[in-house]
Design a protein around this nucleic acid. Structure first.
Lengths: 146, 146
DNA sequence: AAAATTGTAATTGTGTCAATTACACACATT
DNA sequence: AATGTGTGTAATTGACACAATTACAATTTT
């Protein structure tokens, strides 16, 4: 049940912005690091900006900036901002309602699937972009300019 | 996120087998209930049989049967038997190792993603096919022949 | 022997995501 | 003001995965 690569790339992007706190970073540079296309990054930033996590500065010397302290952006927030579809997908075409199982399976399964998703989300809520950035700084042996 | 429908359809299938305990059910009938193709069901049953959850009886009057008590088949087992790909997908092409973030992001993210997946799986481990079948029986106002 | 059913391979159809292209719009610098 | 830089968004294309479908060999029951 694969999620798209959006979530991971979005966290990657935010981590770079956290490390370059204050300095605008161009989508081209972000794309270079994530090994993808600038437009893909801009599309992600669009969602992140809607959620209030980033802003953009147009024109020469412009780029993306964090709009909020990285310690106040949980990975769950990022997940929700850029990942839209359901975690579990049900039957492609609705099950046959003539059958008791077909008639009830989705409603019966729903609470369990929701609980599982909630458990996953609770874990993502515990970690922030600041945590990720700090860990990267440690591995790279440098300090994040506060 | 076009995730696969395999997991839900597999649970659907096992619930039917649990309710028809002892009686073989043809892939055609299972497919009719799940509103899909018999071959799709047979492919799922192939994985479930490999995992030791079902057996098949060939020939006229044949079909699929549970090989284990439904109370001994957790949804997590089903999930693992029929769903192969990773829950979180990382970058499509590897991030740029010239950048500190690109070089470390995947390793830094891995523990969190693993913990999130484990939390999800723990929930799926709590519920069995027997639970699902019982809930369906209750909604359909009938009893499962033990 | 004949009919029924599974198991599996191969092909086709469909949909989603990512890459790419294109361009209008906004800002900054001169 | 004019020009260059960069974002924002739409549209197209490519790649890929899943499901549907077709086909058929193998096995079992009647």
């Amino acid at each position: 049940m694969p999620t798209s690569t959006r979530f991971v790339v979005a966290v990657h992007t935010l981590a770079i912005l956290a490390i370059n706190e204050g300095r605008p970073v161009r989508s081209e540079d972000l794309a270079f690091s994530a090994n993808t296309n600038p437009t893909v990054i801009r599309s992600l930033l669009s969602g992140l900006a809607d959620a209030g996590f980033t802003t953009a500065q147009l024109g020469a010397g412009g780029g993306a900036l964090l709009a909020r302290k990285p310690s106040h952006i949980a990975l769950l927030d990022v997940y929700r901002a850029v990942e839209d579809s359901e975690l579990f997908s049900m039957h492609r075409s609705p099950p046959n309602s003539v059958c008791v199982v077909g008639r009830n399976i989705q409603n019966v399964l729903r609470p369990t699937l929701d609980k599982a998703q909630a458990a996953l989300e609770a874990e993502l809520a515990c970690v922030t972009v600041a945590d990720i950035a700090a860990e990267i700084a440690q591995r790279g042996d440098f300090r994040i300019p506060s």
